[in-house]
Amino acid sequence: MEFLMALLVFPMTSFLFGIIGQILARKIFVVVGTTFCVWLVATFTIFNESFLIWVFIYSLFSLIGALMVEFVGKSKYE
């Protein structure tokens, strides 16, 4: 079950947070930084240190989601 969450649920949550966060905050680094901080806190409170590599991967998914919204928004107004 944990493996399924690490490979499907958590990345999708990070990606959706990147999309929604970019729509609300309109700052890519705020969205990605928030995602990173939340997963980093979860690493040391819920999971163990081996989860740290997933923190970077989930932050990357959040960055991808935020960049997609950024590019769609810019192309919409051009």
Rank of each mutant, 00 (worst) to 15 (best):
V31L: 03
W39L: 00
F17Y: 05
N48E: 10
F51V: 02
F71S: 10
I19G: 06
W54E: 07
I28G: 04
L63H: 00
L60M: 04
F71E: 12
F36Q: 01
A66W: 04
I46C: 09
S59Q: 05
A6H: 13
Y58M: 03
T34K: 00
F10D: 10
L24F: 10
A42D: 02
M68G: 13
F71C: 12
F51G: 03
K74Y: 07
Y58S: 02
A66S: 15
S50H: 06
I64W: 09
V9F: 10
S75W: 12
M12Y: 08
A6I: 13
I46V: 15
Q22T: 09
T34W: 04
E49C: 01
V72A: 14
I46G: 00
F3I: 15
L4N: 11
I28M: 06
T13F: 00
L8K: 05
F10M: 10
M12L: 14
T45N: 03
S14W: 05
T35L: 05
K76Q: 13
V32L: 02
I64Y: 12
Y77T: 10
E2N: 15
L8E: 02
L40A: 09
L4T: 14
A6T: 13
F47A: 08
F17M: 11
F44K: 03
F61C: 10
G18D: 04
I23T: 09
F29H: 08
Y77L: 15
I53N: 07
Y58N: 05
M1W: 14
L63A: 04
V31P: 03
E2H: 15
L67C: 12
T45D: 01
I64V: 15
A6V: 13
F17E: 06
F71G: 12
F10G: 00
I46N: 07
T43E: 01
I28E: 08
I28D: 03
